[in-house]
Design a protein around this nucleic acid. Structure first.
Length: 272
DNA sequence: TTAGGCCTGCAC
DNA sequence: GTGCAGGCCTAA
């Protein structure tokens, strides 16, 4: 389940493979994995990758003429780099052959992710970021959440929505709320400036710690080199229902909030 | 504001 | 065989 730290790890491990390399060929094994369905992908051939960018969970791969491929990993998406002679794994929906001889494969068994084509980076950013996403959660500031005082809804739902901050999923929302000692069902309009500062600090800290560990591998996630992330062992809430809270020893509670399994400590995550 | 659907693999 | 996992979009 790639969230911000996992996508950032994919970006970091993919960048040296792509940058400066030209696309020699593209194979689409599943037309409905690519948006738009009839994207002019052959226009990418012969062009060189010059930049990679990440915003929230979205990864932009930019070519010298500004054409842009947007990778979204969804739940089970994976980027695999291999010699083209290697056996192609099942669910490899798009294959990118580079002039280095490396084949970059976008695999995704569940197909919650996808690949988007944009003629320019500006169009990609307009459609994918400005229209839908809040600021990147890694650079969260208390001011980004100042409008919460006039907003309905609960903490967990707002943080999952991507509209206030982009990049948090179920794992890191639970981790950040635990770290900030905030209840997932706390109404956002009741949150105090002090709690917002705590929350923003917790978000940045947990994302930073996870990036340093190469992300969280619960089951599927791997980086471009096929390595799992090491943050799972440091998780304090996610996946720890009924286990003792690492702060107070009270067993962690499991509820459903915003339609998602949610784990928190009844003792030290309080609601106002 | 919430529920359901997409989709597959795995645990029970 | 059933149910659960969930990012994100659509509909009620």
């Amino acid at each position: 389940m790639p969230e911000l730290p996992e996508v950032e790890e994919v970006r970091r491990s993919l960048a040296p493979v792509l940058l400066g390399r030209r696309i020699r060929g593209i194979t689409v094994n599943r037309a409905d994995f690519v948006t738009p369905r009839r994207a002019p992908l052959q226009r990418l051939v012969g062009h060189r990758f010059v930049q990679t960018l990440r915003h929230g969970k979205k990864l932009f791969c930019i070519l010298e003429d500004s054409q842009t491929l947007l990778i979204h990993l969804g739940m089970t998406g994976r980027i695999v780099c291999a010699p083209p002679t290697d056996l192609c794994p099942p669910h490899a929906h798009v294959l990118l052959d580079l002039d280095s001889g490396v084949q970059v494969r976008h695999c995704d068994p569940r197909r919650f992710g996808g690949l988007w084509y944009y003629p320019t980076l500006a169009t990609a950013l307009a459609c994918e970021v400005h229209d839908r996403l809040g600021p990147d959660a890694l650079a969260a500031k208390p001011a980004d959440l100042a409008h919460w005082k006039n907003l309905r809804g609960k903490l967990k739902a707002r943080l999952l929505s991507q509209h206030d901050l982009a990049g948090l999923g179920n794992i890191y929302v639970d981790e950040a709320l635990w770290m900030a000692r905030l209840h997932p069902l706390q109404l956002v309009r009741r949150i105090t400036p002090e709690q917002i500062r705590r929350l923003v600090g917790a978000i940045r800290r947990v994302l930073g710690q996870s990036i340093a560990a190469g992300g969280t591998t619960f089951r599927d996630y791997r980086n471009v080199a096929g390595q799992p992330g090491k943050f799972a062992r440091q998780l304090r809430a996610y996946g720890r229902a009924h286990l003792p809270c690492k702060r107070c020893g009270h067993p962690l509670a499991r509820i459903v909030a915003a339609g998602r399994t949610t784990v928190y400590c009844r003792q030290c995550q309080t609601r106002h």
